Simulated assay, not measured.
Amino acid sequence: MFRFKQFTIQQDRTAMKVCTDACVLGAWADVAGNHLLDIGTGTGLLALMAAQRNPEAQIDAVELDEVAAGQAKENVAASPFASQVRVWNTPIQTYLNIGSGNLPEPVYDCVLTNPPFYTNSLRSPDKTVNRALHTDDLPFADLLTAVRRLLRLSGTWWVLLPPPESDALIKLAAVAGTASGTLRPFRQLQLRHHAQKPVFRHLTAFRFSASPIDYGPDELVIHELDGRTYTLEFRALLQPYYLIF
């Protein structure tokens, strides 16, 4: 169990537990708009963080794993944001894609994603862990197809990945655009455990654009060099959520 200031995450039945980098994504991403989507919600963490920051938004949280979706529903129901968040137990590949295969128009102003990213790594004996961590059920090509289908032309997509996988996603997104434009990065936050550690996560924001967008990545360091004390920047970002700040 992980207690935040305004909600609690029960996570005993889900493979993906609350982690610091996901909390940074939930606190850093711009969740403006009336309709938000969380792809692969797991415990419901990102959806609930978005609901806290944007009380006017309606948020759909999609989760493939039945048990995880059930726990996410319980976390949402026990929170102050139950009227804002709906959890759907379905693959994103077929979500809102029944019948004709196309929506009349894209639905969402903002999409949040903390996707699986392992490809050839050693497998766990736990199938739910493999599903949460490995790309078998949600390869990047399928993820891009879903986001292009569901994101409004003026919308933004926020993704958390390790640096190599983030670079691979950016390249893949640039290869196949649509008539309305190509999903291109316009902001990035690079995350370090402390200043002498390498960057271990990229938080990248995409939007539709006809040409590449100039941007310089920002950086967030979680701890001081002692590895225990949180930096002032990290404390400021997570202060609305963490009980310890």
Rank of each mutant, 00 (worst) to 15 (best):
N102S: 12
H134E: 04
A72R: 00
T135Q: 11
L232A: 09
L45C: 01
A179H: 09
T204R: 14
L64R: 00
Q6V: 10
A141R: 11
D214E: 10
D167N: 15
L112G: 02
G40W: 00
A47M: 06
F234W: 14
L183G: 07
I59R: 10
R235Q: 13
Y108I: 10
A27S: 11
L237Y: 05
F200A: 02
A146K: 14
P240W: 03
A82R: 09
T113A: 08
F200P: 01
A69N: 01
T128H: 00
F245E: 15
G99H: 12
E63A: 00
G216Y: 14
A176Q: 14
A141P: 04
P91W: 02
D137E: 11
C23G: 06
A78L: 15
H194M: 03
V24Y: 14
L189F: 08
L220I: 09
G101L: 11
T90F: 01
D21F: 13
A68W: 00
Q190F: 01
Q84P: 14
E165Q: 11
P185T: 05
V175P: 10
D142F: 09
L150H: 04
P106N: 04
D38L: 00
D137W: 02
A141C: 09
V62R: 09
N102C: 06
R3P: 11
P104S: 12
N130A: 13
F117V: 10
F4Q: 06
A173M: 07
F2C: 15
G40D: 02
E105Y: 07
M49V: 04
F7Q: 11
R13D: 08
R131A: 06
R53E: 03
A57P: 07
R131K: 07
Q71S: 03
F81S: 12
D167T: 13
T135V: 15
A61F: 06
K5M: 03
L25F: 06
Y108T: 08
N114E: 08
A210P: 05
A27E: 12
T231P: 07
R123V: 03
T94M: 04
N89Q: 15
A179M: 13
A179E: 15
T231Y: 07
E66F: 01
H134G: 03
K5I: 06
Y241A: 08
Q190Y: 02
